[in-house]
Nucleic acid binder design. Structure first.
Length: 322
DNA sequence: CATGAAACCTTGCCTATGCG
DNA sequence: CGCATAGGCAAGGTTTCATG
């Protein structure tokens, strides 16, 4: 039986009820039996489990030729450019920490094999309790651009050690609270490619290929799919993925509005006090005149403070917009 | 002196990131 | 990959302040 990645997903979730199952990782050597409670191994175990599951359900596949690179499974053994499946797993109580691929290999790979962009990622979000019991909290089927994002100083989320680029790592694609996320995952294949191109340029080790990378990729992609992709410039799309700056700008604007409002109210208040002062001066009410004069001085200080707030907010807006 | 609104502080939670 | 950590955000409580 041959299934697509989507059919595999549906079968796992709907027919086999994977979200209701419980598992445990056991190991024995001699007469010593242990239950593995370390999470490092769960990803590999899940991949092997899926292979066992495919076998048991009689689903055809060819296994990976290179365990370092996606995919893990070719669901169509006769055409190893279609229906490719990559399996990932991560601790659902934390963020996804798995690697997508080594950046340099990936950047070259998608020129040589553009169909790799179409790999389906089957992702398990698991939980492991103190007894080592593993349960699957979530399963997703995703394309690569749906699980990757930019980072502060790079167009794609990269693991960087001693200034050297290593792996592409995922973002959080399932956040229910966007107020807490700084960078959203990419909206399209085109934006993802734009980010890769920019990263090829920014990375010292690939910088020299940057001039030809995009053209080479587009040629290869067209040859394989017949499609002329239109890739936006990174500088034109980068801001929409930076929610942090968007929020900062909004806050600065609201601070400015508030401070301006405050400033106006204080000015009105001072005017009112001046009127009162006038009345009491006419009455020669020395005590009250002194008190009102004190009040006016106080309000003038408040006005200065408000003015400072206004300037600060305006400076922030200029900085973020400029 | 009481009141209500705004400013301020604390705490817990979550994400992003760097390192081993 | 896991883990530690920093920093941002929300909620809730508390303080401060203008005002009647």
């Amino acid at each position: 039986m041959r299934l697509t990645a989507q059919e595999v997903y549906d079968k796992l979730v709907n027919e086999d009820g994977i979200l209701q199952l419980e598992g445990q990782i056991k190991f024995y050597l001699g007469d010593v039996n242990i239950i593995v409670k370390q999470r490092d191994v769960v990803g590999n175990i899940m991949q092997e489990w899926l292979q066992g599951w495919l076998d048991k359900r009689g689903i055809e596949y060819a296994p990976s030729e290179n365990t370092q690179m996606p995919p893990d499974f070719f669901l169509n053994p006769d055409d190893k450019t279609k229906n490719l499946l990559e399996v990932k797993a991560f601790n659902r109580n934390r963020g996804p920490g798995f690697d997508i691929a080594d950046f340099r290999m990936y950047e070259e790979e998608i020129i040589n094999k553009p169909y790799m962009l179409n790999v389906d990622y089957l992702i398990f979000g698991y939980d492991m309790n103190d007894d080592g019991v593993v349960t699957i909290k979530d399963v997703w089927l995703k394309k690569v651009w749906e699980i990757t994002r930019r980072m502060e100083d790079w167009p794609i989320n990269l693991q960087i050690k001693d200034n050297v680029v290593h792996k592409i790592r995922p973002g959080i694609w399932y956040a229910e609270d966007t107020a807490r996320t700084d960078y959203t995952v990419f909206e399209s294949l085109e934006d993802f490619i734009s980010a890769i191109e920019e990263a090829v340029f920014q990375n010292p080790k690939t910088h020299n290929n940057a001039g030809t990378w995009k053209a080479a990729f587009l040629r290869s992609y067209k040859q394989e799919t017949g499609i002329d992709l239109s890739i936006p410039r990174w500088s034109e799309i980068k801001d929409k993925y930076d929610l942090k700056s968007v929020r900062k700008l909004e806050k600065a604007k609201s601070d400015l509005a508030k401070a301006t409002d405050q400033y106006e109210k204080i000015k009105e208040r001072i005017q009112l006090y001046h009127q009162k002062l006038h009345v009491e001066q006419e009455k020669n009410n020395v005590g009250k005149v002194g008190k009102i004069q004190d009040d006016i001085e106080k309000q003038k200080k408040n006005a200065e403070k408000a003015k400072e707030k206004i300037n600060k907010a305006q400076a922030k807006i200029d900085e973020l917009e400029g």
